[in-house]
Computed example of a mutant assay.
Amino acid sequence: MLLIERLKHTSFSDAEQVLVSYLIDHPEGLQDMTTQKIADLTHTNPTSLIRVAKKMGFTGWLDLKEAYLEEWQYLNSHFTAIDANLPYEQTDHLISIAHKINTLQQNTLQDTLSLIDSKDLEHAQKLLLNADEIKVFASKTNALIAQDFVTKMRRINKKITISSTYDYSTYEAFNSGNRTCALIISYTGEDDSFIKCMDILKKQGASTISLTSIGDNPIATNSDCSLKITTREKLYSKIGNFTSTTSVIYLLNLLYSIVFTADYEMNLNHLIQIGRSTDTRKTNIDIIKEQS
């Protein structure tokens, strides 16, 4: 759940609710405001802000303010000119639709990049490189997307499997160990089956990397490393899952790349050697033609 949603649904005292309502209605001015200034504007006591922060699970007001502003800035960036759920209209010309989808894709990539922290990437790289086996847990569209990631990783000789059937996922979780790294892809981060798998994986000693939406969710919270999918789409009231699909593809390509670059020359030479031995395709187009 997003922090702003938690603020709206948490029970507060009358004085605390006045503060919370102000936070929700005036996020743009909070950055440079002191607790005393906010208290003066809302006719409350500065200590009420601390109590609100504690109720939300933060150590103090500054931690709450930082998290709240980070979320607000994310939700109000990148997608200001186009709707992720309804990016074009019935009356749009075909070339207009082409431009809007292009804009949507670019916004999605920038949006996803803004959610990435270098420490998380370093952690994900370490977990993947230290694993003897990698297991991907995904369902439906995400499972189809992940198959390309699995293929890329296998081409550089990584032991990796994908589990997309719920019952089978449980078996795969049980058959894991402390040299297993599990990659769990779930847009909501609240998939009961994968939450169960995470519990099993933890008991088996496996490490976990999650790809989920922003905000608090069980899969992200309980994973060793959490990467965020761009979070703009409704569950079903949309033309297509354009942004979430693009975001997951980008993140999987990124994970493959940080594994690849850890032994860049060896992996590149390995791929070229395989290609020379097995790729029989022919072309008359110089730009894609391989040298003899």
Rank of each mutant, 00 (worst) to 15 (best):
H78W: 14
H270Y: 00
N253R: 14
Y88C: 12
G29H: 12
I145M: 04
L127T: 02
D63Q: 07
A182K: 12
N253I: 05
S176P: 07
I288F: 11
A84Q: 11
L30W: 03
D224W: 03
W72E: 05
V150R: 04
S277V: 10
M266C: 00
S163Y: 02
I4K: 14
I200W: 01
E133M: 10
K135I: 13
S118R: 11
D25L: 06
F174N: 14
L75N: 12
L254Q: 01
T47M: 15
Q110C: 11
P46N: 03
A15H: 04
D216W: 13
P87S: 12
F260S: 00
Q36L: 15
L23C: 10
S186I: 05
Q17S: 15
K65G: 01
S193F: 13
Y68P: 01
L201G: 02
R281S: 10
I274L: 15
R155M: 06
N269E: 03
H99L: 03
L128P: 01
I116A: 13
Q31P: 07
E16Q: 02
G189L: 04
N175R: 13
Y256K: 02
A173K: 02
I185S: 04
D83I: 01
D32V: 06
S176Y: 04
N45S: 13
L129T: 03
E71R: 04
P46Y: 05
H123A: 12
G177A: 06
E233T: 04
S193G: 15
S139V: 14
I209Y: 04
H78A: 06
T165A: 14
L127C: 08
Q73M: 14
I285P: 10
V136C: 08
V20D: 00
S77K: 15
N217Y: 08
V20L: 06
N107A: 11
